[in-house]
């Protein structure tokens, strides 16, 4: 197996943007979004269309920041949580950019970044974008219960973020100075978790496996990074992941955190274990993390995008929810 991929040609993040809903605006990272909509609708009639609109807006913001036009993009790698990836296809159709639809559940942001970086690094594309999104109201309807249905959410449950994040990658020109330096694609890990309201536990073994592989192959140490962010394990999954890594002799420090935990204000918002969904890690990375890079506060971070692989039918058929975790490393040059 190939192991850790090193991007020698320095694919750079030319621009990034984050768009979010109301809950996200009121969370810890509200000020890092380029735009939030208090109605969660983004002027659209349905929440599915709103999710597409978020992707369109996010890519537009990123294009504007980088001073590029859609014609400057050679491809876009995009994904979301809705059936057949329609959030992305309807949202990005009007750009007229060659399109790759991805499904990596909540790990899609990291997966898209990795693929975009690969194609740019190899010179197939001069510039490629990666966009991903999730919408709480669309995901609830598809995966859980109707929106107005009165049900109690167990303490281990997470809140699908209404958010989208977009990145534009190109060969290094010193625009932001943030490059993708390494990547490690994840393997599917099935640990037999069937509880749909404990996604953190289903994804934690995959995250632990990818993180452990990375540190044993790369020779790096957790303390070498300013921040090691898992995608959306939430409090429950993140603490399981920490314990799993410790049991393998890898002690993670204070710099080990999770996008789902960062996104919301756990004391006020009562969203149990934190955020989840494609839009969670995408918007936290595109908004908050990129801002911290720009401020010079961080120089080296790992993002481990985590995804729970399942469908409403697989859950009803009693199949276990397996996890996947893709790792990408961001470095300031």
């Amino acid at each position: 197996m190939a192991g850790v991929i090193k991007f020698g040609n320095k694919p750079e993040i030319l621009a990034s943007s984050a768009v979010g809903g109301d809950t996200e605006a009121k969370g810890n990272l509200g000020k890092y979004f380029d735009m939030t909509d208090p109605t969660d609708r983004f002027g659209k009639k349905t929440f599915e269309q709103a999710e597409s609109e978020m992707q369109r807006l996010a890519l537009n913001f990123a294009l504007k920041k980088s001073g590029l036009t859609p014609d400057d993009l050679d491809a876009v790698f995009a994904g979301d949580l809705m059936n057949q990836c329609t959030g992305s296809s309807y949202g990005l159709a009007e750009f007229g950019v060659p399109f790759f639809g991805l499904y990596g559940a909540c790990s899609t942001a990291a997966e898209g970044l990795m693929l975009a970086a690969m194609t740019v690094n190899c010179g197939y594309f001069e510039r490629a974008a990666s966009v991903s999104s999730s919408h709480n109201s669309a995901a609830e309807r598809q995966f859980r219960f109707p929106l107005g249905y009165g049900c109690q959410r167990p303490p281990t449950s997470q809140w699908t973020a209404t958010a989208s994040g977009a990145f534009i990658l190109g060969l290094c020109s010193g625009e932001t100075g943030v490059v993708l330096s390494e990547a490690l694609p994840g393997k599917i890990v099935d640990k037999g978790i069937t509880d749909q309201s404990n996604m953190g536990a289903a994804m934690a073994p995959a995250a632990a496996s990818t993180i452990h592989r990375y540190f044993s192959e790369s020779g790096m140490h957790p303390d070498d990074f300013d921040l090691i962010l898992t995608g959306d394990l939430g409090q429950e999954g993140h603490s399981i992941c920490r314990e799993l890594l410790l049991s393998q002799g890898l002690r993670m420090g204070e710099n080990f955190s999770d996008c789902g935990i960062l996104l919301y204000d756990s004391e006020v918002q009562d969203l149990h274990c934190g955020g989840s969904g494609c839009g969670c890690s995408a918007s936290v990375t595109a908004g908050y993390v990129m801002k911290k890079f720009a401020e010079g506060k961080i120089k080296n971070i790992l993002l481990i995008g985590t995804g729970a692989l399942m469908s409403p039918s697989s859950v009803l058929q009693g199949l276990a929810v397996s996890g996947i975790a893709h790792l990408v490393r961001f470095s300031k040059i």
Partner: peptide
């Protein structure tokens, strides 16, 4: 109309 979870007409009219 259909509303996002835990958002009711009161919180909407406030906004």
């Amino acid at each position: 109309p259909s509303r996002p979870k835990f958002k009711n007409f009161i919180s909407e009219s406030k906004k």
